[in-house]
Design a protein around this nucleic acid. Structure first.
Length: 567
RNA sequence: UGGGGCGUGGCCAAGUGGUAAGGCAGCGGACUUUGAAUCCGCGAUCGCAGGUUCGAAUCCUGCCGCCCCAGCCA
């Protein structure tokens, strides 16, 4: 049985949850968490995790916590927790009053550490970072035990207390779990639990100078919050042994960690390090540059939360590393916007078109549907007059085969208005550039329908010159030209694959007057061109639009294949 | 060469012994006052090789390939 349109498709995590529900493993509860470290901006990859965790909780009648994994004060800042909250909220998820921080548990975590020391399962180690690395051994050779491994419980307790009290220098000592220096799993070779860091924490200030490591803090934070399914990415598979070890030694409530493959998207990069480089080296204008795969970036670009959620649903959840084609993301976007974006007419590269037989000074107002997909969105008035602007690309002096737009002698439909025929082309004498088209209109075709039933295939968008508003339009395209930005010649890096045309700024664009009402964030379909949204750079009397994504362009494909065949 | 994972059409991904869902992309065609949308049609024997079985993508064995792990990062 396929699930098709009837809901999310099955995946191995749902299987596990359903099995747990059936056996009553967690008393029928499902409780997940999204645990970002507040050290950067969220991107589309995080959206997959957010949708997964919040979605699973919602689907099984459970809850999902938002928990900041803030155990490293040298990298984390409040600025990031604010942006993360904003992004999760924007995506459409609500964590209620369950906004937690690993730092909320520092005292409890400390007590758990003491408990492990008392059980002889943890010790204070004075080896330097370099020495610990040497003692750890390699992937194929076992490590060596630290000379401090067998300190007495009393001494460990005393030392650990003094670590907390600030008696020792940063880096001079750590607390380690006493596990097995010969374990084939390197993670288990007496991992560090606590280190001394003299930095001000964004929430606890200077209260602490020792901070727990991820492996120790994460499993216990999950335990404390009563998480049932702790979902993380594949690279933590090795860490699961340690996750389980801490919880088992302590004998506390034990959630289960489940790993899935993180999202990789074609034509972009999703690692914090690379995204940071794009920003810091000026390849883009910031974390919210509309070309960035950050939530802030795609939000500004004009993506909708619905489209992103749909995308996350469609890509599925599995354990195989994969690269999702960005075309799927774009499809989800168009699919959503097609249903909700009002249509308007905008001419990006204006070409004057004069209707010689149309009365000078006359203006007609036509009704235009706002969205043929949704009659409920109503209609608007569109002014028509003698001098119009049409898209420069819609005219060809010497048209190729299958062309049914404007050309000398050709008749086309001006959408919602009249049928016009191109009679004369005016060119700049010096450059030969076409500067103006002279047409005649057929008064009998008011509204765009020919009473004699003659077929006119081309339907063009246009705007009345006297009524048009000026606008700036930023045409965004994929950030990288290659599906895999890392596919580079020997010795070069991903920046060589940056798309030099990922941004083209057009000024002097002409848009229909109804757009005077447009406000930042508003989304439209510019008829025949694509989906655009109003950029926050807009101000009164200064309209700036971002192209979110273009419409599918069948003509471009035809022309390409024509070129291939025709030469 | 240690350990942990993964390998189903171009890209994702269902499938858990009974004879390969679905989506995206692509290619045809219909319809069309957006060359949009919509609608119809077209593609895989499941990394490879053996084996078990009446029957295997699903079980076993052996290969091959890819990913992760040697931070006092998460």
């Amino acid at each position: 049985m396929t699930r098709g349109d009837f809901g999310p498709s099955s995946n191995f995590i749902r299987d596990i949850i359903e099995e747990d529900l059936r056996t009553g493993r967690y008393g029928g509860r499902v409780h997940t968490r999204f645990p970002p470290e507040p050290n950067g901006y969220l991107h589309i990859g995080h959206a997959k995790s957010i949708c997964l965790n919040f979605g699973l909780a919602a689907d099984y009648g459970g809850q999902c916590n938002l928990r900041f994994d803030d155990t490293n004060p040298t990298k984390e800042e409040v600025e990031y927790v604010e942006s993360i909250k904003e992004d999760v909220r924007w995506l459409g998820f609500d964590w209620g009053d369950r906004e937690f921080y690993a730092s909320d548990y520092f005292e409890q975590l400390y007590q758990y550490a003491v408990q492990l020391i008392k059980a002889g399962k943890a010790y204070v180690c004075d080896l330097s970072a370099d020495e610990i690395r040497e003692y750890r051994g390699t992937l194929t050779e076992p490590g060596k035990e630290s000379p401090y491994r067998d300190r007495s419980i009393e001494e460990n307790l005393d030392l650990f207390e003094r670590m907390r009290a600030g008696e020792f220098e940063e880096g001079s000592r750590v607390l380690r779990a006493k596990i097995d220096m010969a374990s084939p799993n390197v993670v288990m070779r007496d991992p560090v639990m606590y280190r001394i860091i003299r930095a001000t924490h964004h929430r606890t200030g200077d209260k602490w100078c020792i901070y727990p490591m991820y492996d120790f803090a994460h499993c216990l934070s999950d335990s404390i919050e009563g998480i049932t399914h702790s979902i993380c990415t594949l690279e933590f598979e090795n860490n699961r042994a340690l996750y389980d070890w801490f919880l088992d030694r302590l004998g506390v409530y034990h959630p289960q960690q489940i790993e899935f493959a993180r999202l990789n998207l074609s034509h972009t990069v999703l690692s914090k390090r690379k995204l940071r480089r794009l920003v810091e080296e000026g390849y883009v204008d910031g974390w919210d540059d509309p070309r960035m795969p950050t939530i802030a970036g795609i939000r500004r670009r004009g993506y909708t939360p619905e489209a992103i959620r749909d995308f996350c649903e469609r890509i599925g959840v599995a354990k195989a590393n994969s690269i999702v084609d960005i075309a799927l993301l774009e499809h989800c976007l168009r699919d959503d916007l097609n249903k909700r974006a009002p249509r308007v007419m905008a001419v990006l590269r204006p070409l004057r078109l004069v209707i010689d037989n149309y009365p000078e000074g006359q203006v007609e107002w036509f009704d235009a549907v706002n969205n043929p997909e949704d009659p409920g969105m109503g209609t608007r008035k569109l002014p028509f007059s003698r001098v119009l602007y049409v898209e420069r690309e819609d005219f060809r002096e010497d048209p190729p085969r299958k062309w049914f737009r404007l050309a000398p002698g050709r008749e086309v439909r001006l959408k919602h208005a009249y049928l016009v025929t191109c009679m004369r082309v005016v060119k700049d004498e010096r450059t030969g550039e076409v500067v103006e088209l002279h047409c005649t209109y057929d008064p009998a075709t008011r509204g765009g329908e020919a009473p004699d039933g003659r077929k006119v295939r081309g339907a063009l968008h246009w705007v009345s010159a006297a009524h048009a508003l000026d606008a700036e339009v930023r045409l965004y395209d994929r950030l990288f030209v290659k599906a895999d930005p890392e596919d580079v010649p020997e010795g070069q890096d991903f920046t060589v694959n940056l798309n030099p045309n990922s941004l083209e700024v057009l000024t002097g664009c002409k848009v229909e007057p109804s757009l005077a009402e447009a406000r930042p964030g508003d989304r439209y379909q510019f008829l025949r061109l694509g989906y655009f949204c109003v950029d926050p750079d807009s101000a009164d009397g200064r309209l700036v639009f971002n192209r979110t994504v273009g419409l599918r362009d069948t003509w471009a494909k035809i022309e390409r294949s024509l070129e291939k065949k025709g030469g």
